[in-house]
């Protein structure tokens, strides 16, 4: 079998190889992807329900099957079983029964109504980052909020991109009246202070995750539209477009099969920065109280509570460090991506 020739590497592959050499960005990327994938399995890692439990030679899986009353396992508590205590009692009794808890056995919603939880508990071995104003575990909330923040930013960015490519692409490709009309709309849209508009809308309707994304998309599609318009406008005057059209390709095919792949550079290089924007937007909305409905774990809400209890430093530092380290990783990725895609090499003086 003849060996593949080096020169036939596609441009994207070359860029990926370049990206891999930029250690700071590459490792941030790997770490962030691993963390995000892990965060989907958070119920297995950070939760107050037992993973597996064996009681009188029968196996139970509370994490899948959900609610079990405490009386079912011979625990004298009202309502749901407190598995941590169950584990402690059975271990001290050396009984046949056993419980396997998640690595971090606290849930983000478990507040002072559960026995043993205290308000404003400073960081300790049991609560790694302490507890908040209602006795909920800060670390557990931090982890769940990470998943929500990243998911929010990802869905938001992808939606914005789809709208941006369709509208911006059509504006650049068709031009004329259509372009002019949308230009005016964009001008009006971008003159509005959007965070305020979102606040007005959110104060009318209590947003859920997808409603919030919807509202934000309505407000936020402009950035990508602008980029795509310029990109399509430039590409459409090139020969390959004329060639495709002369061979009888439809406008739709020319736009999405021929031009779009050539307009990918801004899409990809802008992506990490759009994610940064999405995450910070959600945090600031949550901080103002117009984001996710409570008791959804969110960094913004934790910041708000933290600032009200300024003497309890962990409550401010925990969400800020989480926010900061996530954002800085994304920024590192963005910087590396930009460098990988940018053929310009700055020459030094002389």
């Amino acid at each position: 079998m003849p060996e593949q020739q080096e020169i036939s590497l596609s441009i994207l592959k070359k860029r990926w190889l370049k990206f891999k050499t930029l250690k700071r960005g590459y490792y941030s990327f790997v770490l962030l992807v691993i963390l995000y994938i892990l965060s989907w399995f958070l119920p297995l890692l950070v939760n107050n329900r037992a993973l597996v439990l064996s009681y009188e030679d029968e196996m139970y899986f509370p994490i899948i099957s959900g609610y079990y009353a405490g009386s079912e396992f011979g625990q004298d508590v009202p309502g749901e079983t407190i598995y941590r205590e169950l584990q402690a009692t059975w271990e001290s009794e050396n009984s046949e029964n056993w419980v396997i808890m998640p690595i971090y056995p606290y849930s983000p919603f478990e507040d002072i109504t559960v026995a043993g939880n205290k308000m404003y508990d400073p960081p300790s071995n049991t609560h790694w980052l302490g507890t908040d104003n209602t006795g909920r575990d800060v670390f557990a909330r931090l982890c769940y909020a990470f998943n929500i923040s990243i998911s929010f930013a990802l869905v938001l960015t992808i939606l914005n991109y789809i709208i941006g490519v369709i509208i911006g692409g059509s504006m650049g490709y068709f031009g004329g009246r259509f372009d002019l009309f949308f230009q005016r709309i964009i001008e009006i849209w971008s003159s509005l202070p959007m965070l305020f508009v979102i606040i007005i809308i959110s104060s009318i309707i209590r947003p859920s995750f997808f409603l919030l994304i919807f509202i934000y998309t309505i407000v936020n599609w402009i950035g990508m539209t602008y980029l795509m318009r310029a990109e399509f406008y430039r590409e459409k005057s090139k020969d390959y477009v004329a060639a495709a059209l002369s061979m009888g390709q439809t406008n739709f095919k020319v736009m999405f099969k021929h031009i779009l792949p050539n307009a990918m550079v801004p899409i990809i290089t802008f992506f990490p920065f759009a994610i940064v924007g999405g995450i910070s937007a959600l945090v600031s909305l949550d901080y103002l109280g117009f984001g996710m409905p409570p008791p959804t774990p969110s960094w913004g809400q934790m910041l708000d509570v933290g600032l009200q209890n300024i003497t309890k430093a962990w409550m401010v530092f925990a969400p800020i460090s989480a926010l900061f380290s996530t954002l800085i990783m994304v920024v590192f990725i963005g910087e590396a991506v930009r460098e990988a895609f940018d053929p310009k090499v700055y020459s030094r003086l002389r």
């Binding site: 940064v276 910070s280 945090v283 600031s284 901080y287 910041l303 933290g306 600032l307 300024i310 003497t311 430093a313 401010v316 530092f317 800020i320 926010l323 900061f324 954002l327 800085i328 994304v330 920024v331 590192f332 910087e335």
Partner: peptide, 22 residues
């Protein structure tokens, strides 16, 4: 990079906790 990754108001909170008598 650090400055880019921290929103101004979040930095404000850190400063308040550290230097504002928190």
């Amino acid at each position: 990079f650090a400055a880019y990754s921290i929103p101004g108001y979040a930095l404000g909170m850190v400063l308040l906790v550290l230097l504002g008598g928190g």
